[in-house]
Design a protein around this nucleic acid. Sequence first.
DNA 1: TCGTTGTTCAACCATATGGTTGAATATGGC
DNA 2: GCCATATTCAACCATATGGTTGAACAACGA
Lengths: 108, 108
Amino acid sequence: MVEQRLDATFAALADPTRRGMLASLAKGEASVGELAAPYAMSLAGASKHLGVLERAGLVERRRVGRQHLCRLKAERLAEADRWLKQWERFWTASLDRLEVLLAEEKIT
Amino acid sequence: MVEQRLDATFAALADPTRRGMLASLAKGEASVGELAAPYAMSLAGASKHLGVLERAGLVERRRVGRQHLCRLKAERLAEADRWLKQWERFWTASLDRLEVLLAEEKIT
DNA sequence: TCGTTGTTCAACCATATGGTTGAATATGGC
DNA sequence: GCCATATTCAACCATATGGTTGAACAACGA
């Protein structure tokens, strides 16, 4: 279900290392070693983070020679974005004020 | 920093109970008891979830009589949304194809 | 075939998370 | 003042998470 996918997606995004790896992948495919390089962390640790991203469906890994190349998969990000859009009206300036008033005055 | 706020925001969103509570709050202010009602969970448990949402800045609590009323705060949701927008081009149909090709062909 | 490179696996550790229960606190009504 | 209501606090438990290390595996180069 979408609910469980959102659990995994948001959990995967709740870590700066993983968000950074996604940012790297936005520039194109990269190997595990390349993705791990910026972080003061063992390769095994970085590989685990990629595992989280992969299980959440945010990244695809394929083997090329002895490298494992990773590629961004955007569909789940789109799904998370659609979920967040539900609240767009709350942060849209003019409507935000209105919603606050609605909440306060209990006008339904 | 925005990075740490994103950690807290995405972590808070990575739980179906908390997302459900936010959905309830979209309809207006509600007490802890009201927010807890739909869930097969102790009140203390629900209160902890609200604590997570509050520390993440997604919810504001104020005391009214013996009730603690909660209200949605949308700014952090907007921040998360802006972050996700970075990848919009990857899931936009026509550009998605292009990006995949760019990644595969290593055209920079 | 042997060593090197790239990556994963397995075991382990510390801390965080999601939940419980029972007691404590604060407010309102009688 | 006393009892009921609304909520939090504190202690506890099981499991998940983020990290480590050392060994294993797979592929390339000589």
